[in-house]
Design a protein around this nucleic acid. Structure first.
Lengths: 250, 250
DNA sequence: TAGTGGTCTAGACCACAAT
DNA sequence: TTGTGGTCTAGACCACTAC
């Protein structure tokens, strides 16, 4: 005999089916807890747990005192095409271009400071841990809503004493153009992508629902003649982004 | 006054801190529910919920009747380098190369059949919905453990009547080589990456823990002279993979 | 004020692990 | 047999929304 799946998963599956079939459209309100309790003949904890599964999947969101609603997701496309390419003067930042693609307005905040390079970053930059690096933390917003975090590291051996030692509005022009300005020719971009649950500070900075938000993390490294000149951790709310990469065959 | 975070999140944060600091090393057993109840002065449901948060994050796994243990994750690196490149005869499949990189043994299963093209796939292939396509479903295993699913679609207008109409052991050589064999020169590869929670059938096929497993989904499309000749949905257990992309600047 | 979700208590039963 | 996690009951209180 195959084991019966637990009730909370059956209820979650029932609701999920009604969402993906369109019966419960984006913006629609789910049946309230008490209705679900009556309909399925279970106690409140079971219905709450079923709904918690759907929240963890990003399918629904609870609004306190009002109800649970089907989310409408529209993903921003982040295309590698043109990213890490030399941009024309006056062109807008890659982030601004991405969010413009979904009809939204881009803005960002940043702060910079010199630090001793932590171990995991040192491995990516190919320097000794403790080496002086410039760290810049960014928070990017689409229509005023924070959607992306980034932390950038640059060896000061490359930029010390130059006009681009501080990234200032580096986000507006991109790393490649900044390095060009001091004669460093970036020739390769490498991005490593992982997905994981959100860390607590990310939940706070990105105003995510507590417990179970999904993140995509891009470790991006720019290289010049084989040596890394910048690396960054880019943290994206997974349900708001699609990453696109394209390359020629042969 | 800042609001106090709920107890279950505080307990989860406490345990998470002890895990990432290394105090609770991979393989270590967490304090039992009853210990946590006593230590934090809460009821069982609260400790269970705290542990559930860590499970959803992929940090720990419960072993029924035994305890909850810190997971040891080693990520397989899936590198775009060499993927969608013309391979030398006798070379192994991209998947086999990936898992060999972490010292594991690769194997896979597949089944093929002709179907009418579903709508979302039709958009990617640039054909009318309902057009005849060959669908092949793969399940890939590393050391016998299923770690990856893939569903591939090829317009039969391209392959009908050729020796590669059925992919057969297509996984062993790759799409580019198969298309080469019938004179179709693949010249571009596009991959779109999203992250989301696992679907129920994925939980079953990949033997994942129910409720909250994270997936990465790669929509890969091969093109020849502007026309798509193959597209695939590649589903990866997020905590077992790292995707790497690299491209030249300018 | 009534309805709703978010959190929590204090138990219970079962299946499975370790012994 | 004892301890453990997985599931579930049947309540409770609070904060918030909608009216």
């Amino acid at each position: 005999m195959p084991a019966e799946p637990p009730a909370y998963l059956q209820i979650a599956a029932d609701l999920r089916g009604r969402i993906v079939s369109g019966e419960l459209a984006p913006g629609a309100k789910l049946p309230s807890e008490s209705r679900l309790m009556a309909q399925f003949g279970v106690s409140n904890t079971v219905t709450k747990r079923a709904v918690a599964v759907l929240k963890a999947e990003g399918l629904v969101e609870g609004r306190h005192g009002s109800g649970v609603y089907v989310r409408q997701v529209r993903r921003v496309v982040r295309d590698s095409q043109g990213r890490g390419q030399r941009t024309q003067p006056g062109s807008t930042s890659p982030f601004a271009r991405d969010v413009a693609g979904s009809g939204q307005q881009a803005s960002w905040e940043h702060d910079s400071g010199e630090i001793a390079c932590p171990e995991n970053v040192a491995a990516r930059l190919g320097v000794e841990p403790g080496t002086a690096v410039m760290r810049t933390r960014y928070r990017y917003l689409a229509d005023g809503v924070p959607v992306q975090l980034a932390t950038s590291y640059e060896p000061l051996a490359v930029t010390r004493g130059t006009p681009v030692e501080l990234p200032e509005d580096g986000a507006a022009v991109g790393v490649v153009a900044r390095m060009d300005a001091i004669g460093v020719r970036v020739d390769e971009c490498v991005e490593a992508v992982i997905a994981r649950a959100a860390h607590p500070e990310e939940i706070e900075l990105l105003q995510l629902p507590a417990g179970g938000a999904l993140m995509m993390v891009v470790e991006r490294t720019y290289r010049s003649a084989g040596a890394a000149v910048e690396t960054a951790d880019i943290v994206l709310a997974a349900d708001r982004y699609q990453l696109v990469y394209r390359w020629p065959v042969e």
